[in-house]
Each structure stands twice: as structure tokens, then as C-alpha cells.
């Protein structure tokens, strides 16, 4: 474990908590893409199948459990408890356009052709594009609530910090996982224009609005 990965995990945890609290306290999921949340729940489910078979550390197991519980709780709140506030008209990105190609790629490009490894690879590729429905929804509505932009900033920062972690691990341990690195770079690049808007607008106290 290194400081970059720890900060990355905490940023990820912060993002998940911010979103869950936003929905729970405002009792509304306006402006949030339920499809992205479903994809994130799928990412954690396919990635953490080794939760009970492969003990790394208390930290590792606890974080996996927290991510799984929070992601399913968010999906539950969005599609059941606060369903009336879910903006399905603007959350129209076709998830199958992501899941099918990612599923195919996971079969073709992986480290080891075993079920657990292919599912892990699938979760890595899927996580890289899982935010697209959310970014697409913001581009359609042309704006995002400030709390949602904080959520996205924390979520985007997490994988950017992981990239620094991978550079650090390469030089200190000689460890690198090309699949995770390439997917992590794609994932972070997808946030770039949002990062620009966040830093130039939200940090100046303005509303995050996309140029129509």
C-alpha cells in the first residue's frame, strides 16, 4: 500500500458516500444516472467475487464490502425508494452498448483465460466506461447540481491517483498490470473535460453548466 493508492481509495469512498448521502438526505436522485450506478454495482460484483476466497487484509475486505453495500444501496434508492425522482427521460444511454463490447474484449484480452480472471478483466474494462451514462446525462440536461459535480470530481480523482500509484509501484516494486493501467488511463481521460469545467466553474462558486 502506498499513499497514492490510499488517497485514491479514500477519494473513491468519499465519492460513493457523497452520492449516497445526497440521494438519502435530499430524498431525490435528480441529475444522477441510474444506469451508471447499475454499471458500478456490476463492476464491484464481478471484481470482488474473491472477497471470501482470497483474504488480502482487513482493509481490503472491509473496503470491498463497503463498496458493494453502498453501490447496491444507491441502486435500490434510485430505482425503488426514490423512483419518482429518477429522471429516466435524460438517462437514456444504452448500457448494452457498453456491456457487450466490454464483455467481448474481456474474453479476447486478459491475463488468464479463467472465469475469475475474465470477470475481473470485465470489471476493469467496464469501470473505465461506466461513467459515460452519467456524463451523457449531464450533457443532455446541460447542467449538474454542485453536489453531483463534487461526486464526479472525487470519482475521477480516484483513478487518476491510482495511475500515480501504478507509476510508484512500477519504480519501487517493478509491478505493473497493463490491463488495469490502460483502462485506468481511458477512465481518467473521460473525466478531463469535466475536470476542466469543475476547476474553472465549480471551484469559483458557479453552477456547473455545459456550453449548450
Amino acid at each position: 500500500m502506498n499513499i497514492f493508492r490510499l488517497l485514491g481509495d479514500l477519494s473513491h469512498l468519499l465519492a460513493i458516500i457523497i452520492l449516497l448521502l445526497k440521494i438519502w438526505r435530499t430524498r431525490s436522485c435528480a441529475g444522477v444516472s441510474g444506469k451508471s450506478q447499475i454499471l458500478f454495482a456490476l463492476v464491484f460484483t464481478t471484481r470482488y467475487l474473491d472477497l471470501f476466497t482470497n483474504f488480502i487484509s482487513m482493509y481490503n475486505s472491509a473496503m470491498k464490502l463497503i463498496y458493494l453495500v453502498c453501490s447496491y444501496a444507491t441502486v435500490f434508492l434510485m430505482y425503488f425508494k426514490f423512483k419518482a425522482t429518477y429522471d429516466s427521460n435524460h438517462d437514456t444511454f444504452r448500457m448494452e452498448f457498453l456491456v457487450v463490447p466490454v464483455g467481448g474484449l474481456a474474453f479476447l484480452v486478459n491475463h488468464d483465460f479463467t472465469p475469475l480472471e475474465i470477470l475481473w478483466t470485465f470489471s476493469i474494462y467496464l469501470e473505465a466506461v461506466a461513467i459515460l451514462p452519467q456524463l451523457f446525462m449531464i450533457s443532455k440536461t446541460g447542467e449538474a447540481e454542485t453536489i453531483t459535480s463534487h461526486y464526479l470530481f472525487a470519482l475521477g480523482s480516484y483513478r487518476a491517483l491510482y495511475i500515480v500509484n501504478w507509476v510508484f509501484r512500477f519504480y519501487t516494486e517493478g509491478f505493473f498490470d497493463l490491463i488495469a493501467i490502460v483502462a485506468g488511463c481511458v477512465q481518467t481521460i473521460l473525466y478531463c473535460d469535466f475536470f476542466y469545467l469543475y476547476i474553472t466553474k465549480v471551484l469559483k462558486g458557479k453552477q456547473l453548466t455545459l456550453p449548450a
Binding site: R5, N54, I56, H111, G174, F176, L178
Partner: peptide
């Protein structure tokens, strides 16, 4: 390159 070790990252 060497196969990635145990999946110790989240």
C-alpha cells in the same frame, strides 16, 4: 512482463 501478482488492489 511477469504476470500481475495477487490482486491486492481494490
Amino acid at each position: 512482463y511477469d504476470l500481475p501478482q495477487l490482486k491486492d488492489e481494490l
